[in-house]
Design a protein around this nucleic acid. Sequence first.
DNA 1: CGCCAGATTGACT
DNA 2: GTCAATCTGGCGG
Length: 192
Amino acid sequence: MILPKEYYSRDPEEVAIKLLGKLLVRELNGNRMSGYIVETEAYHGAWDPASKAYKSLRGDLAKTLYGEVGLTLIYGIHGKWLLNIVAHKGDGGAVLIRAIEPHEGIEYMMRNSGTTNPYKITSGPGKLCKALSIDKKLHKKPVYTKESGLWIEEGRKVEEWEIMKSHRIGVKVDLEKPLRFYIKGNPYVSRG
DNA sequence: CGCCAGATTGACT
DNA sequence: GTCAATCTGGCGG
């Protein structure tokens, strides 16, 4: 079952937690690739120093951050693409997908990412996008319909005790609140 | 159009 | 732990 659009009309922090264990599906040229989300980060609006809307409400990224929920927000950094899902209740925000556990179409993902080590295919936001052929063409596409070739389905049940929290990674100026969430003990989380 | 910072990654001390 | 190569969007001129 695909998660409905309303699923993303909540605080980014809450959505980030709820997305853990869900199945991220990518369909391309008839090939189905998927993986369970095991690591996420929450980003807020203008008051979040790490947000793209901080000090610049101009630009497509900031507008998307404050726009319709349930859309992808593809952000390029250091020559990589990062996958975000717009999620907020009116005040702007998004959830960054940092890592997934490969499930279907692993062969295609390995070919895309150029490695045969299953633990290195999707264990990072940049690598994940490469493995699933996600780039700017998928910017602002809905994840609550199959039409875009990228969507999120109901996945595993994740118990509360399996979810760990920590500070965000790689962010220069972070908030004190822990906004990174990942599944405890999962070997596919990035660097940690 | 040129400059610059950055939500990364992989290699190295 | 540290470091720098790498590319796009945002912003100034």
